[in-house]
């Protein structure tokens, strides 16, 4: 079981080489196949995830959640997807059409790109980049542009307010986000995610870096636009923020991208802080799924408990609390590493 997927990939490449393809082409085709598989998994996973969030939020609120279609309402998301696909596509007449239309596509492309570097198991990743973590952070911050495009292109005050908020928020939270990961990088000594996983062989980084974990969790919530930091959307205030003018499939793409981001960030958290795919008994790819879902459930739990924070408080929280704390964490980690070396522990 453990090497199921890696063996499959190796067999696939081997088979293509026997067909007379050069190894380079075989690699490229393998990459394409990996992408297609990942996109399929993302889409299928999101169907489950949306259903799960609905169910979980319902349970928090003593409701039942979707329960009409299929056992426990599992097919509800599919029905919704069909509904969204068949809905009329409305583009506001005053909208900046090109920007308005490309924004959701941009958003989802950026979200899917995040999966390139996440190790989904032992030796299972699309590309084993040696700056994987940096890649993840930088690609992750690109989604701001998509939201800004959506807000600008809609030509709507609510959308623009949502977009401006999201830019301000993301820029502020990018810094503690990166800083809190820095401690991990310092300990593991690598930006390669597989190396980071390997470094957690004995001890998960959540134990070595608890402060970093908490600051990363908060900053990631803000990055993901999830409650209590869902400023760009803020249904109750901005009536949907940057997404106000979107309908049908375009809106669904945003929705999809948000969940894709959520899974990616949760997977990264599992990788960086929770030991990645490492774990006893079960195969590695199952472990990462379990850990990712665990983190996702915590995201759900937080969202469905807390009220939304105010914009100015959000900013000041980032600059006055998170940035200093994560900086302090770096200092502490550095001191700790020197102390260890001095003591001869590592």
């Amino acid at each position: 079981m453990e090497h199921l997927f890696t063996n499959l990939a190796a067999a696939f490449t081997g088979w293509m080489i026997t067909l007379g393809l050069s190894p380079v082409w075989a690699d490229i085709i393998l990459l394409l196949v990996k992408w297609i598989i990942i996109i399929t998994i993302i889409t299928l996973n999101i169907i489950v995830l949306i259903w799960l969030e609905r169910k979980v939020s319902a349970f928090f609120q003593e409701r039942l959640g979707p329960n009409r279609l299929g056992p426990f309402g599992i097919f509800q998301t599919i029905a919704d997807a069909i509904k969204l696909l068949t809905k009329e596509d409305i583009v506001p007449s005053a909208a900046d059409k090109l920007i308005f239309k490309t924004a959701p596509m941009f958003f989802i492309v950026v979200a899917v790109m995040l999966y390139t570097v996440i190790p989904l198991g032992q030796g299972m990743e699309v590309i084993n980049l040696n700056i994987g973590l940096l890649f993840f952070i930088s690609i992750g911050s690109l989604s701001t542009i998509a939201l800004l495009m959506a807000g600008w292109g809609s030509d709507n005050k609510w959308s623009l307010m949502g977009a401006v908020r999201s830019v301000a928020q993301m820029i502020s939270y990018e810094i503690p986000l990166a800083f809190s990961l820095l401690g991990v990088v310092m300990i593991s000594g690598s930006l390669n995610l597989q190396d980071i996983v390997a470094a957690q062989d004995n001890l998960w980084f959540i134990i070595l870096q608890p402060i970093a974990f908490i600051t990363y969790f908060i900053a990631a919530t803000a990055e993901l636009n999830r409650g209590p930091f869902d400023m760009p959307e803020a249904e109750q205030e901005l009536t949907g923020g940057a997404y106000t003018e979107y309908t049908g499939m375009r809106w669904a793409l945003f929705f999809l991208a948000e969940y894709t981001n959520l899974v990616a960030v949760s997977a990264l958290m599992a990788t960086v802080f929770l030991g990645g795919w490492q774990g006893p008994w079960l195969p590695s790819w199952l472990w990462i799924i379990i850990k990712t879902y665990g983190v996702i459930l915590v995201f759900f739990w937080v969202k469905w408990t807390f009220p939304r924070i105010r914009m100015d408080q959000l900013m000041s929280f980032s600059w006055k609390v998170l940035v200093p704390v994560s900086l302090g964490n770096i200092l502490l980690t550095g001191a700790g590493i020197y102390f260890c070396k001095w003591m001869g522990w590592c």
Partner: peptide, 13 residues
């Protein structure tokens, strides 16, 4: 007030 401030669960309770 719960839902206006984003605490949807408060609304339900």
């Amino acid at each position: 007030t719960g839902i206006d401030l984003g605490a949807t669960t408060g609304l339900m309770y």
